[in-house]
Amino acid sequence: MKMSGFIKHSVLLFTLTVAGVLYLCISQLRYETVDNEVIDLLRKKDRNLVFETEIAFMARMKLRMQQRKAKLKQACVELGLEKVPFRPQVMMTVRSYNWINCRVQKAGSTNLAKLVSQLLGENDIKELSKMNPAVRLSGYHGAEALSLVKYQDVNQMKGFIKTITVREPVVRLVSAFTSKVENYQGGTDSRKNNTALAPWRSRDDMPENVTFAAFIQHVLYQHKAKSPFEGHWSVYNDACQPCHVEYDVICKLETILEDSRYMLNLIGAPRNVSFQAGYSSSGNMKNSLANATHWVKTLDPTTLKRLHKKYEMDYKLFDYDLPEYLKL
């Protein structure tokens, strides 16, 4: 009898283990439903487990996007940006998936490029790059470049999913500094070709180390002088004109795993394609919110006021909480 009980226990344990593996596989592959019997078995093992079917996930994400778009629309009206004329710009489209995306540098654009590479495949990328030189302008290594004459063109492209990815504005700005300035420090020749170091490009006495404060002064000067567009720290309205283009999906880097999963489902991407996250809001990564706060707090009050004026619009458009140090 004892052996019989042991066998029954072993079989039950094996069944639960297999069920757990099946559930994880189903979740990763983004199937439409999770078998109720599997859920029941797992809940008998742990009553605290919470499950979400793919249908429930898509419904929750749809609501999230509706809320983000509603807040964006409200901010556009309050800021008067709907009345600002649309400027022609280049956007990226992957026609095989009916997907149009506005590239925002320092907001996961490199990993998004890798995602496009997964969608198109290495062979397709090489061929597209040869056939279409404009591919390089889009920065998507093989994605087609779509030049928009007026925003109605993209809004009237039926069946296309239009997306944008944004990031907490100050974190994005600090990320631009760390990647485009800090990583170029040390007197290498490549620093002369770095857009972020443009103020000193023609000088023989280019400083060995450009400080964060000096970088911010350059960013603010470019904004005041209306210098040529620089995508790494441009405001979102200049980069993607969200008050004119009707984006279906507004991804935030802080919630990129769920947002990108939702977007990939909408465009019908293969189940093995996913966004490779490289960002964390936990404070553990170099470009975290905590690290950005450390850098920005070193600036003087006058500079902080100017920084607030430049990026206040970004905070309002995409419903980010304005940091205390910018509330001057």
Rank of each mutant, 00 (worst) to 15 (best):
L322K: 13
I216Q: 06
S280R: 04
P169A: 11
Q89A: 10
K45P: 02
N36I: 07
A19V: 15
S227F: 12
Y31P: 00
R261A: 02
P301C: 12
G278T: 05
L16H: 12
K130F: 11
L24I: 12
Y140M: 15
F51M: 03
V154G: 01
R172H: 09
L120G: 00
K106N: 02
G186I: 00
I164C: 01
A213V: 05
V174S: 06
K180W: 00
I164K: 09
A70M: 03
D300T: 11
H141R: 15
G139P: 11
S147R: 10
Q28P: 00
G231T: 11
P207R: 03
A19C: 15
N193R: 11
M206E: 04
K44D: 15
L299D: 05
L63R: 01
V170Y: 08
N272I: 08
M58S: 10
L317S: 06
Y315M: 14
L41H: 13
F86K: 05
F14P: 03
I250Y: 03
K226Q: 15
A75R: 02
I39C: 08
H244V: 08
Y262R: 02
D319S: 14
V296N: 06
K309E: 11
S234T: 06
V21P: 03
L307K: 04
R271K: 09
A239E: 10
F275Y: 09
D300A: 13
V34P: 01
V235Y: 05
T302C: 06
E144I: 09
S175V: 01
K83V: 13
F318K: 01
H294M: 12
D204F: 10
K286M: 08
N132H: 14
E127S: 04
L29D: 00
T211C: 04
M58L: 13
S179H: 09
G142S: 09
F275V: 00
D300S: 10
F318P: 00
L16R: 13
L137R: 15
F14Y: 14
L72R: 13
G159Q: 04
S202R: 15
N193V: 05
L148M: 05
R191P: 01
V38S: 02
N111V: 07
A269F: 07
L41R: 15
G121M: 08
N272K: 11
L137D: 06
S234R: 07
D189W: 07
S109D: 10
V245M: 02
F86S: 02
Q241T: 04
T293L: 12
I26T: 10
L137Y: 09
R103F: 10
F212T: 01
Y31I: 14
R172C: 10
C102K: 07
N111K: 02
Q105T: 05
A290P: 03
N194M: 08
Y315H: 14
V170L: 15
K45Q: 15
K327D: 14
G108Q: 03
G142L: 12
L128H: 12
W295N: 01
L119K: 02
M206R: 10
S190M: 08
L148Q: 03
V90P: 00
N98E: 02
R103L: 13
E258N: 05
A19T: 15
S117E: 08
L328W: 04
P207L: 01
L81D: 04
Y262V: 01
E182A: 09
G20R: 15
A214K: 09
